[in-house]
Design a protein around this nucleic acid. Sequence first.
DNA 1: TTCACATCGGTAACAGTGTTACCACAATAA
DNA 2: TTATTGTGGTAACACTGTTACCGATGTGAA
Lengths: 229, 229
Amino acid sequence: MIFIHNEDKPSSSTGRVLKTYQEARLQNTENLRKLVVDAAADILQEEGPEAVTVRKVSERMGCSTKIIYSLFVNKEGLAQQLYLEGCKLLAQGFEEVPLSSDLLQHLLDLGEAFWQFGQDHTSYYKLMFGGAFAEFKPDAESMQGTMTAMSRLLNLISTAQQQGQISDQEETGTLVSIIWASLHGVIHLYIGGFLGDAEAAHAVYKQTMVLLSQSLFAAQLVQQRSEQE
Amino acid sequence: MIFIHNEDKPSSSTGRVLKTYQEARLQNTENLRKLVVDAAADILQEEGPEAVTVRKVSERMGCSTKIIYSLFVNKEGLAQQLYLEGCKLLAQGFEEVPLSSDLLQHLLDLGEAFWQFGQDHTSYYKLMFGGAFAEFKPDAESMQGTMTAMSRLLNLISTAQQQGQISDQEETGTLVSIIWASLHGVIHLYIGGFLGDAEAAHAVYKQTMVLLSQSLFAAQLVQQRSEQE
DNA sequence: TTCACATCGGTAACAGTGTTACCACAATAA
DNA sequence: TTATTGTGGTAACACTGTTACCGATGTGAA
């Protein structure tokens, strides 16, 4: 039963998912990989990270678990692809933030976009930064994807430093890490259930952004103040 | 083999762990609970959070898994006890920080103690805040334990607000959350492998503390400045 | 003392996980 | 047509959390 490699048999009642799997198998493995990642992504978003299991993915694909192990080495390999998928979504979220000549406002907007990503794609967030897959450590490709997603933030800080609005005593990368980590901490504690409801957590988040940017842009503020006097 | 309930039999070669289990069983269940938590804590520290399994704990105890389910409802119940154990260690770490009349310095010292806790008890940290047990959400007792551990930080912020060194526009709890979450974010990203080696991560951590405290104590700094003029 | 009852806890199983050895089949090459 | 290669499904292994079962043990009453 199940899979007869003979193509003569009509589609019958095996369903559409099965057909796409058959189609992809006739083409290159790259399409098949994408199909598996999509199936896994669906499960991730519908049922959360812990529901993403090799068997569930293969069932949804209509194939055996062997396929997943042939295409990706193990579950972690599949998780890495999902990580990169999440990076794309995050980058997309950042892209939608309008450019602004007010760099402080721009920073706040980017921070807000990061919060929104955590809310709209909580399952992805848990997978990527939440330690949902205990064994998952970012490899070179993952870090590359992360940096690409974060490039918008990096460019902003760099520009602000060049314009003298943010001190250039610290390395740009360090400042990005500080902002990223601080905001991540709020989101992660909230997801973990430590910061009450979404409203309270969002208040903490926004206040964290304010405090950080106050310090970062402090030189400018002081300068503005002395100019006003 | 294994457990003969007859006490006439001498200790034989069953080992010391077994004897303590037998002893505790003769006493109340509270001692037995503590013994189980200790065994689980040993595994946690020796082999990490993912190694803490019901079977491993029961093997180390020299009893069946049933005991764990009788004493704690399920694995999560045991995890909660480990969480509280971690709170004690964290509180202990905070206790060792010397009091200081310089509240800013005191804040930096407490922050450093939090970092040290993450380094010295990484397994506990992962269990408590790292999401190592995906299903674990802090219940009322866990939150209570967390607050007790954090009380040192809470008192400090409260005092600084009363002395006018930190603005009292924000609620004390909110400020504590901001500091906690930001520092947690750095530790968590570092543990997750996103911030490079310990040295680089520690630099980010310290800089985060500096930026935050600069904003928090900003009013005072401005005040000092105007007093000097 | 003896006997019924209740409780405690060990055994063995269930359902689920990641992973892999095995082997039948299809496609290709000679 | 035959030999070889490789793809992929089946079924198993070693784990996990969890629980149904049931014998043994201790405890109460007669």
